[in-house]
Design a protein around this nucleic acid. Structure first.
Lengths: 331, 331
DNA sequence: TTGAAAGCGGTACCAG
DNA sequence: CTGGTACCGCTTTCAA
């Protein structure tokens, strides 16, 4: 690889001048600049970003840490990050923690080694203490989809408990009294939140414990299918399914159909997330909106911005809302 | 930020020793090692990956260039890349060219500046000449979903023309004679391929031009919906829709339903890609399999492997296949 | 406007 | 086993 000195030699100038040209430095003679540029083009010289980064540690770059880019929820998050990064021409370093053995912690540490000063992380397994340490060490550390009081200013989160209540109330108000709740089996701190809140709310309303059937499976299409199988096999009666997320809900509808049960005539279904696809399923999916893309945009702006402390809590704390479509109906 | 020399000073040893410890160097006294490790932990020292990269240019890292991570097709591709990278503990630098103004070229050049020696790129707009140049400059450059003869050894691609014929033949064999083909409006070299081949094949079979209605729209759920609207509005009669991809197909089914047309009873639909979701739609989607994840895995192995020239053409050239489900039926 | 030289954080070679 | 030193590719004073 050609270096700056090679170029300098070829152009009969000093490395300093070449450096100035590369960085659009202010004080270079028109002659010299032209000559140098010509050589650069000719040789096909590309500056070494690593060497540049060694001096000036202020790279415009954001690291992403998330479990799995293939799940639509996370690819929507990545897309939000990308939009902000793209506008600012910032690099993106992606770490899918599920794919890596050591996972989240290793991912964060690698980003630190590369001196990333901005990172947006969705942590499923790290404990509060560790995250607090990271957040305090790295000013541009933003924690997504999780709220830790001690570093609240660096969190962007959804009031998940609210979503849990919301969907329960919705189902209840629509006259349903026998529920199945599909819960995620992932080791995700707080994954249980929406489930617990729904159940609590219903019980507080006087629903009997045995009228709330809980099925645990993976938060995927397949998981939703299996959950319905297990549910039917269990013999519990139910008129409404509250799924952990849209993928499970879609999988559920698919298996309900296979079992000869129609949505929403026989069983009403509520998802969670409001993925793009939710609007295009048949029937269209009633769900709880999780504005992940908007949240990712805010998080990335915070991570990349210099005055991150200016973002009000009201802009960091998001609220879920019901999206009414046709997979759910009154009993 | 603490440097290696800070640690050395604090431990009363030389920088060399610290360096050896960091890299699990072979010749360090147990005493010294312990002392150094202790200080490192205490200070919270993190080696600077950029400085390391300046010497040893062989980083284990792969760059991704693709249009848009949010489309399921591309997130499946990213997922494939991730799996291989994760196993090898390689970094991933992601560039979504749509989000960046200057797009693909800029993305590739940034990767070069960072001395990435492995990259997997899906290029939609760059011309052959430029890509050939890149491929020849960077040994670990792998071009995905596109085949350029001159750099065939660095391409991983699907025989798209075959897919175009396949679905046409399938529809024809099932007795359909009036078709609508939904085509992508994206500036993607070769995006038209599957459309052109389908049409050609049908015409060769004696289908009249006016019995093949072409609608051009974006390759998304919404695009599929609009395409159906336009199609219906056009007054053409049709019994089968060949959609550019699964997303359009799903959008199409959704709008057909809204128009009171049932799939497959009134209209049969074929998608393209075989996304995860295809199995869970209602009706389940008949489609052309594009094994993008498997392809991405091969591409990444090639990009990251040292003996990349060993991969046979048969492993780089993939073939589409029909996946029969219920959205398509005999006339 | 230009060049020489020091330094950024590490690595690696060579003595000791 | 350990330390000294030169050097990686580039930027940035500081003089000239």
């Amino acid at each position: 690889m050609a270096t700056i000195r090679d170029i300098a030699k070829a152009a009969g100038v000093s490395a300093s001048s070449v450096s100035r040209v590369i960085n659009n430095g202010p004080k270079v003679g028109e002659e010299t600049r032209k000559k140098i540029l010509a050589i650069i083009k000719e040789v096909g010289y590309t500056p070494n970003a690593n060497a540049q980064a060694i001096n000036d540690n202020q790279k415009l770059a954001v690291g992403i840490v998330m479990p799995n880019i293939q799940q639509p929820f996370f690819s929507a998050m990545a897309h939000g990050i990308e939009q902000v990064a793209g506008q600012l021409n910032a690099q993106i370093m992606l770490h899918s923690s599920e794919a890596h053995e050591q996972g989240e912690q290793e991912a964060i540490e690698t980003l630190m080694e590369h001196r990333y000063q901005s990172m947006v992380v969705h942590s499923s397994v790290l404990d509060d203490e560790k995250l607090i340490r990271y957040a305090q060490t790295i000013p541009g550390f933003v924690l997504m989809n999780r709220h830790i009081e001690a570093i609240s200013g660096q969190c962007v989160w959804l009031e998940d408990a609210e979503g849990g209540r919301l969907r329960a109330k919705f189902a209840f108000d629509y006259g349903h009294r026998k529920y199945a709740i599909f819960c995620s089996n992932r080791a995700d701190i707080g994954a249980q939140c929406r489930f617990v809140m729904s159940k609590q709310w219903l019980i507080a309303k006087g629903i009997e414990e045995h009228d709330i059937c809980t099925i645990i499976d993976s938060p995927t299409y397949q998981g939703g299918r299996r959950a319905v199988q297990d549910l039917v096999a269990s013999g519990h009666s139910f008129t409404a399914i509250l799924a952990h997320n849209d993928e499970m809900a879609i999988g559920a509808m698919s298996m309900l159909e296979a079992q000869g049960l129609s949505t929403p005539d026989d069983v009403s279904v509520i998802g969670y997330d409001d993925l793009n696809i939710a609007e295009f399923t048949q029937p269209q999916l009633t769900t709880v909106k999780y504005p992940i893309e908007a949240m990712a945009i805010v998080a990335t702006q915070m991570a990349l911005s210099l005055n991150k402390n200016q973002v009000q809590e009201s802009q960091r704390k998001f609220h879920p809302s019901m999206v009414l479509r046709s997979s759910f109906c009154r009993l």
